[in-house]
Design a protein around this nucleic acid. Structure first.
Lengths: 343, 343
DNA sequence: TTGAAAGCGGTACCAC
DNA sequence: GTGGTACCGCTTTCAA
């Protein structure tokens, strides 16, 4: 045993062993063009032998680059987000970036903490799908001010915020749903949305309303609900909706969790779907496909979102080193109606 | 504007503004007992005013502590893992730790990269549910050697590995499933497991076999299958299983994804469940509850796993500073049979 | 109660 | 092609 008492072997240790300078070792490990092939070989060999691993803290500190991207999502268990994360991670991994995934649990307080922690870790960029309750985005100001690439997606700021965005075509999604119900012959249509403070539901609601209007159908005030889209809330709303006639013959729920709840409610209350009630959900959650009857829903193409997200990030990362500030722009990703058995 | 040209404000900037030393600023920000209350106030105020944020890279480099824990899971989209992650994150957040979540996509190659990246980031500890294909765990040796807390859970090494473990009671889970089918009167029982290289299926298989044996039932060689538990694989196996009589009257699938596939196959092939075939899955995936008929399954108590995991980690983190090395030990978390409509 | 200064590990500028 | 060295931002002796 030589000097293995020390836990970490550093670039200096390698230099000492090889009787060369730390600078040379650093350059060799970074494949610097001006280092001789032989030296590189020797250094790499020794590094391996000594179990050397670059200390990212040190190099990040020196370089102002950590090759780490932070991502904040409301819940990793949501199908859409899990998909986006997976693809983003794979894409970034290829580029040599690491991804720090953080969950806000839909708590703005936690989101604030997470943003702060990511900044403290000096991530090179941040991807965010905010909580449903985030209306004040000032906890992200620090990234904007320091010129750290920041891209919002899915749940993006409703009011102007000086950052890049990738958003789904919520309006069109809502429109497609409304149109489909109308064309299926529904005359008395109801709908359940999330809170309109969130861009998602704002868009879906607007599109849905427009579609009904285009088909000369009204969306009556007491047939539209806005609340957090949980299983329980959906059941409560259905109780209300089916407490007095006339019952609706078409229902749009702005997520699939609620649509699943509808199925459950219908089964218990002998409401036939699609016979008595036609149903459309949103997100194309796999559960919507596996349930009986399979639920008609709107696909958000998480893969496409992920690709746009990484593309936008890359552009910002490039511009950053070139010190050019791009005007923030909103990219829109497609949606599509997936027709199944509930309509 | 004073010196706001510089993007980052550091402890030195604060010191200069306040005409005190950086050391004092550092101590004030860390709430050092010997700093006067007044100085602390002034520093904190100035820090806020200047938008100062501690640079974790620098403090981590200096302290050999990053207050960051790394976590490697096969897929965040799996219900069990999503649950564990969420609870682990919440627990660690309370303790002031950040969590880096990494996905191996069940690729050992990627797992190796991720382990290396986490070490490079000098995380204070690592939590791992390995890929199905990891049998060589040497990429984690670095953590063992440097005394960095390492805890495996769920998918743990089958052979001895010198690290702490938290594993589900797979044997008992398998036993409960077998016993339940036997007690339901099944005489011709089939089963689908994952590859036995993985501790999960090894345990579930052993328990299941033992239960059948205890009930004087045989598990025939051509009625047991071992393969990756995907939807497609399950359908293929079912084709085989139902290609010739006698058909099984009881089936255990070692995950819920496969059980869902069974439901789909049964529907298409007019097999009545539970009439013709009784079915048990594993994991208590929410989909198993929402489908019709709701699937009997085995709950793994992800919350309990998460708590044990964090407890084990904390113990190691404590011991580390005390420089005591604990003997690695395997903690076992409970499972429970959730009886529903398929049995 | 506070300050001066060394140093964590790696990189890059300036020499040679 | 290689070496010497200052420095990234923060913490922590040691000294006052």
């Amino acid at each position: 045993m030589k000097s293995n008492d020390k836990l970490e072997s550093t670039i200096v240790d390698i230099a000492r062993e090889l009787r060369i300078s730390p600078a040379t070792v650093s350059r060799a490990l970074n494949d610097h063009p001006k280092i001789s092939h032989r030296t590189k070989e020797r250094v790499r060999e020794k590094a391996l032998e000594m179990g050397y691993r670059r200390n990212k803290l040190a190099s990040g500190l020196r370089n102002n680059r950590t090759y780490t991207i932070g991502m904040i999502v409301p819940r990793i268990s949501m199908f859409f987000h899990a998909e986006v994360i997976t693809i983003v991670q794979n894409l970034l991994h290829r580029q040599g970036y690491n991804l720090i995934i953080c969950q806000s649990n839909d708590s703005r307080e936690l989101e604030v903490d997470l943003a702060s922690a990511l900044y403290s870790s000096r991530v090179d960029g941040v991807l965010v799908a905010s909580t449903l309750y985030t209306t004040d985005y000032s906890h992200f100001d620090v990234f904007v001010q320091k010129g750290i690439p920041l891209v919002f997606y899915d749940r993006v700021p409703v009011d102007f915020y000086p950052a890049q965005m990738v958003k789904g075509d919520e309006y069109r999604g809502g429109y497609l749903a409304g149109e489909h119900l109308a064309e299926a012959g529904c005359k008395n249509i109801a709908a359940i949305f999330g809170l309109l403070g969130c861009c998602l539901y704002k868009g879906r609601y607007a599109g849905f309303k427009a579609a009904l209007k285009a088909h000369k159908l009204a969306l009556k005030k007491d047939q539209v609900f806005f609340h957090e889209l949980t299983h329980e809330n959906a059941l409560a709303t259905l109780d209300k909706l089916f407490s007095s006639k006339p019952y609706p013959d078409g229902l749009f729920t702005a997520n699939d969790t609620s649509a699943l709840a509808v199925l459950e409610f219908a089964r218990e209350n002998k409401i036939r779907i699609p016979g008595d009630l036609k149903l459309i959900g949103y997100s194309n959650d796999p559960r919507a496909a596996s349930v009986t009857p399979a639920i008609t829903t709107v696909d958000q193409f998480p893969g496409e979102v992920a690709r746009q997200l990484v593309a936008a990030l890359n552009k910002l990362l490039d511009n950053r080193s070139k010190k050019i500030m791009e005007k923030p722009e909103a990219l829109v990703t497609p949606v599509a109606l997936i027709k199944r058995m509930t309509t």
